[in-house]
Amino acid sequence: MKASLILNALIILTLPTQLWAYGSSSSSKKACEKPYFSEFAPPEKAEVAAGTEFSFIAATVSNPESIKVTIKNQPVDITVTPKGGKYNVSGKLPNSLAGSFARINITANGPNQCKGTGGWLVKVNE
Rank of each mutant, 00 (worst) to 15 (best):
I104G: 14
V89F: 00
L10G: 07
V80K: 03
S27P: 03
P42F: 03
T79D: 12
N88I: 11
E33A: 06
A46M: 03
F56M: 07
S27A: 08
E44W: 00
P94T: 04
Y36P: 05
A3R: 09
F101L: 14
G118N: 03
L15H: 03
T60R: 15
L19S: 14
N109A: 15
M1F: 07
F101H: 12
V89D: 01
F37T: 02
E47Y: 09
R103I: 13
Q74H: 09
D77I: 10
S24K: 02
I12Y: 10
S25V: 08
S55M: 15
K29L: 06
P82W: 02
Q74W: 07
G118M: 05
W120Q: 00
Y22R: 10
R103N: 15
I67M: 12
Y36F: 15
S62P: 07
R103A: 15
G99H: 01
I106T: 08
F101S: 14
T107G: 01
C114N: 11
F40R: 00
I6C: 14
G119H: 08
I106W: 10
T79F: 06
K92E: 13
S27Q: 08
I11K: 10
A31T: 04
D77P: 05
T70F: 09
K115A: 13
A9C: 09
V122Q: 07
G85F: 05
C32G: 10
K115L: 15
K72I: 14
L7I: 12
T79L: 10
F101T: 14
K92A: 11
T81E: 13
T107H: 00
